[in-house]
Simulated scan of single mutants.
Amino acid sequence: MGQLSNRNIAVLSESGFEETELTSPVQRLKEEGATVHIISSKPGKIQAMKGDHDWTIEVDVDKTISAANPEDYNGLLIPGGVLNPDALRKNDEAVAFVKAFFNAGKPVAAICHGPQVLITAEVVKGRKMTSTKTIKIDLVNAGAHWEDSEVIVDQGLVTSRSPHDLPAFNDKMVEEFAEGIHEKQHA
């Protein structure tokens, strides 16, 4: 039995996610005993990328956003990639799904470009965060306190910069998901 036995974790993604930013955390979550659901706008499969140009593996979608209830999940993971967060932030259902986790004080982990979705959900103001440097100014303009660190935890919000940070990101994600509700996690 791992730290996350009896925990349900939602992974919100569209095609164009950075492969290791979904596969590595999902593997770790499952190793810790969590039930993990890949949630996307459409049923079927979503496809990964490595870098900005190379399409790679396909991953089965477990539930569509419209069929998934945030109340059924203990934590939320948002992988990066250039295309994935951009597609999610255009989807009102996806943005509302993300906001529901913050409103309920549930832990959220976002890596690389993933925090772009949090900007659109208007949940970054006053939060200490990191991300890929290319969206630093977007986070700062949205009111986040950005710093260049491998992983930052702020009241249940876990952020990291890139696939290089996955070991630290995965450790802190598991820790926060195991802790559960954070009173100061907010929208």
Rank of each mutant, 00 (worst) to 15 (best):
V174P: 01
V108N: 11
S5F: 00
D72I: 08
P25Y: 03
A100P: 13
Q27I: 04
S149V: 14
W55L: 15
I135C: 10
S162M: 13
Q3K: 09
L83D: 11
S5D: 13
A178H: 01
I39M: 04
P79V: 09
V117E: 06
L29S: 08
D62K: 02
S162F: 03
V98E: 15
S131R: 04
A94I: 02
L157R: 06
A94V: 04
V61G: 05
T56M: 14
S5H: 06
T23M: 06
G81W: 08
V140T: 10
K63E: 07
V36S: 01
A109T: 00
P107L: 06
P70G: 11
A187D: 15
I38F: 10
V153W: 00
L76K: 02
R89Y: 08
L118H: 01
E176Q: 01
H186R: 14
E179L: 14
K133S: 14
R127H: 00
I38H: 05
D154W: 03
E14C: 10
E93I: 10
D62Y: 03
K42W: 04
S66Y: 14
A142M: 10
D154K: 02
E19D: 12
A10H: 13
V123K: 05
L157Q: 03
F177H: 11
H164P: 04
K63V: 03
A121L: 05
W55I: 09
G51D: 07
K128T: 03
G16L: 02
V140Q: 14
V82W: 12
F169Q: 00
P85Y: 04
L76D: 04
H53E: 11
Q185M: 15
T159N: 02
M49S: 13
L88W: 05
I39G: 03
F177S: 10
A187H: 15
